[in-house]
């Protein structure tokens, strides 16, 4: 007769509790590994970045406005590989960490095109959503610095790293390319004009610490023969005069970072190229990418 090596009395509260804690812990680690594997296999831009399949000649980065750089058009025109690493509401610190990771993993790209209106928004919330990539060289320390408690919990429970919106996007782009993403909506021009008319004035901001970080990154990139080009995308024509300090803001950025700004904020784009006062739609995105190519930005 076969004898069991171990027998557990599951009705004993102490034994049960001990087994329960063990199962929770071991399960957490196993599921955590499965989720990690899922993240690595996805076609989402950051999974490609850390999965070493994102080698490109041109890197595009920014917030929701950065997403409007139309990678397929740029790739088609330049006949080079392009990757857009932008994300909605991306803070500068996170962008710096991603670019630094890229430069540490891959041979340097020729140019990094940086949509700098992201400097105007200083929310750090998105960093907390990047925990699926916290094992990277630069994201992990950033999360630990900005959200120490969260970082601790993410190490305590590996499943917990995958709880945010970024992981949902990882799943969504599991088998499909995310580089042709573009705003398909047509903006309601009358409504855009109406909403702009209600705005008295807008002041663009740029945090000195963020500018310092870009400067450091630019020097690091330069050491690898890569140039960072700061870009300002077209704004809805009626909105431009509302930004009172545009010139001063640009001067401050140039002065602090030592980088040239390519300002397309006042490019004469038709109104129907916009979804709202700051975002281009599909037509606008294609036209903007074409304009950059024509102006020799990628040369």
């Amino acid at each position: 007769m076969k004898q069991r090596l171990f027998t557990f009395n599951f009705n004993n509260p102490k034994v049960w509790t001990l087994l329960f804690v063990t199962v929770v812990f071991v399960g957490d680690r196993i599921i955590g590994e499965v989720l990690k594997y899922t993240v690595q296999k996805s076609q989402f831009r950051y999974s490609r970045l850390y999965g070493k399949t994102a080698h490109s000649k041109y890197i595009l980065i920014g917030n929701s406005r950065g997403l409007v750089f139309h990678s397929p058009t740029i790739a088609q025109k330049t006949k080079q590989k392009v990757i857009n690493l932008s994300y909605n509401s991306m803070p500068t610190e996170l962008a710096c960490a991603l670019i630094r990771d890229y430069l540490e993993i891959y041979p340097a790209p020729k140019y990094i095109l940086w949509e700098i209106t992201m400097l105007n928004y200083n929310s750090k919330k998105l960093i907390a959503n990047f925990t699926p990539y916290q094992s990277s060289q630069n994201i992990g320390p950033l999360v630990a610095q900005k959200y120490p408690k969260l970082y601790w919990w993410c190490n305590f429970s590996h499943i917990y790293r995958y709880r945010g919106e970024v992981f949902l996007r990882v799943l969504y782009y599991m088998f499909k390319n995310d580089q042709n993403w573009v705003l398909h909506q047509e903006g309601n021009i009358q409504q855009i004009k109406k909403s702009i008319a209600q705005i008295e004035s807008v002041t663009f901001r740029a945090d000195n610490k963020d500018l310092e970080k870009i400067k450091e990154l630019a020097l690091f990139a330069k050491s690898k023969n890569c140039e960072i080009k700061l870009m300002i995308q077209p704004l809805f024509p009626d909105f431009v005069p509302k930004v009172k300090n545009l010139q001063m803001w640009k001067e401050k950025i140039t002065q602090r970072t030592g980088l040239k700004i390519y300002d397309y904020s006042q490019a004469q784009f038709p109104e129907n190229y916009f979804v709202d006062r700051v975002h281009l739609n599909k037509k606008g995105a294609k036209a903007y990418s074409q304009l950059l190519y024509n102006d020799g930005i990628f040369k």
Binding site: F20, G27, I159, Y162
Partner: peptide
């Protein structure tokens, strides 16, 4: 009790993930 362990653990894992 064995199944209970997995039911409770699954709830905890779901809470952590979602």
């Amino acid at each position: 009790p064995r199944l209970r362990i997995f039911i409770f653990a699954t709830i905890l894992w779901t809470i952590a993930l979602l």
